[in-house]
Amino acid sequence: MSNVIHIEEEENELLAKVEEISGETVTLCEQCGICTTSCPMAEEMDFTPAGIMHAVKLGDKNVLDSKAIWICASCFTCTVRCPRGIDLAKVTEALRQIHLRKNKDHVNLEEVKEEEQEENLPPIALVSALRKFTG
């Protein structure tokens, strides 16, 4: 991966799309990193929450292929701490939606079915997982 990002016109499309779907102003982010250290999942992420915000601002589309946006479980800890008042949970939701709206699911339903029978999963787990991982 090159460490040069060439910023062209089309890079702004990602920012515009995310801002449109989320209703949040991503450019407000001042990169303080409070979201990252508030995030219970940050250690599992390839893009930290602050990194996600920065990638969207720059139009770095790699963020769309990141694990991080799927690891986020919308716990809203970043949202209640962001000093700029950005609802980051909405930003990651927008990134997931960009993916899901292309008719690409993030979960294999067959596997889930098996698991459900084995583990006696509660309906609430299944419904929420399917809502978050399928279009």
Partner: peptide
């Protein structure tokens, strides 16, 4: 006491939940 438990990741990624 208000740390996320991993929520619906229990479907498909139980390990993440078990760590929490």
């Amino acid at each position: 006491k208000s740390l996320c438990c991993g929520s619906y990741h229990t479907v498909g990624n139980a390990e993440v939940v078990a760590q929490r």
